[in-house]
């Protein structure tokens, strides 16, 4: 089974590049917040290509601009300079065409809507998008079969985040932008959701950009890890993680994994 689903994902970033398939291209992007005197440069000259079908995790010191980069790609924040293309289009066009979904740190569910109605929300607003998946199927995919009618207040934090992921998948996005989606969860729940995210990634072939504060999480999930440095936010390294998929949690106990996290830690200390 793993072999067949794996076939959907480009075998390597090199293969994706060879096909010319870039999901998100960031070219010399600056983001400056505020006016002349109070200006804060959140990003300076950031360039990176995210291959189609890849899973790229992003880490960096707090305030280095990880969220800002993701939000600029999502057309939530305008770039002050440089160019971003999402599947060859501007972020705004990509947003209108529902090419990407965003998963926030808080699940941001509407508290008066049941789980399934929250998953349906993207189909009810903004023109609804063209393609869509079956909300009930998605709740099953994220392990919430039988809880369709539950209100967010009746669900645990982990379950709420699963609903948010199902909602992000309902418009069948080509790209999933995730900003510390599991940051507020306990370690056990986080581990479980990490494994599930990998499974969903392999089943759907979606390109994923995933911001995290956790070095092990970044290394465990990522095909590549984008390390950002701060003041101003810039790319420190785009590192490829040579661990085969499907990855199991036990991979974190291997010497290879420890070497990777040690390297990432070293990079972060240099930032």
């Amino acid at each position: 089974m793993a072999a067949t689903v794996l076939a959907k994902v480009p075998a390597s970033p090199a293969a994706a590049h060879a096909m010319g398939a870039v999901a998100v291209s960031v070219r010399g992007v600056d983001v400056v917040f505020g006016g002349d005197k109070t200006a804060v440069t959140a990003l300076a000259g950031v360039s990176v290509d995210i291959p189609v079908g890849s899973l790229v995790t992003m880490i960096g010191p707090s305030g280095c601009g990880k969220s800002t980069l993701l939000r600029t790609i999502a057309d939530l924040v305008p770039a002050s300079a440089g160019e971003i293309t999402v599947l060859g289009r501007s972020p705004q066009e990509a947003r209108r065409e529902r090419n990407f979904s965003f998963v926030f740190q808080d699940a941001t569910l509407l508290p008066w809507r049941s789980a399934i109605d929250n998953v349906r929300l993207p189909l009810e607003v903004g023109g609804g998008g063209s393609a869509h998946a079956e909300p009930a199927e998605l709740l099953k995919l994220v392990g919430l079969a039988g809880r369709e009618r539950a209100l967010p207040a009746e669900l645990s934090g982990g379950m709420r985040q699963r609903v948010a992921i199902a909602r992000a998948l309902v418009s069948r996005p080509k790209i999933l932008l995730m900003d510390e989606p599991f940051g507020a969860l306990d370690e056990i729940t986080r581990d479980k959701l990490n494994e599930e995210l990998l499974r969903i990634w392999q089943e759907t072939g979606t390109t994923i950009m995933f911001v995290t504060h956790s070095i092990p999480e970044a290394a465990f999930l990522g095909q590549h890890v984008l390390v950002l440095a701060s003041h101003p936010g810039r790319v420190k390294e785009f590192m490829t993680i040579d661990l085969p998929y499907p990855r199991r949690l036990a991979v974190r106990d291997t010497l290879e994994f420890v070497r990777i996290t040690a390297r990432l830690r070293q990079l972060l200390e240099e930032c």
Binding site: R71, A74, D75, L76, R95, R96, R98, F100, S101, F102, F104, D106, T108, L110, L121, P122, E124, V125, G126, G127
Partner: peptide, 17 residues
């Protein structure tokens, strides 16, 4: 919450929606 407004913007929701 600002996060909810961000969500609605990503979904390209109109002001009336």
């Amino acid at each position: 919450t600002p996060a909810t407004l961000d969500l609605m913007r990503v979904l390209s929701a109109s002001q009336s929606e």
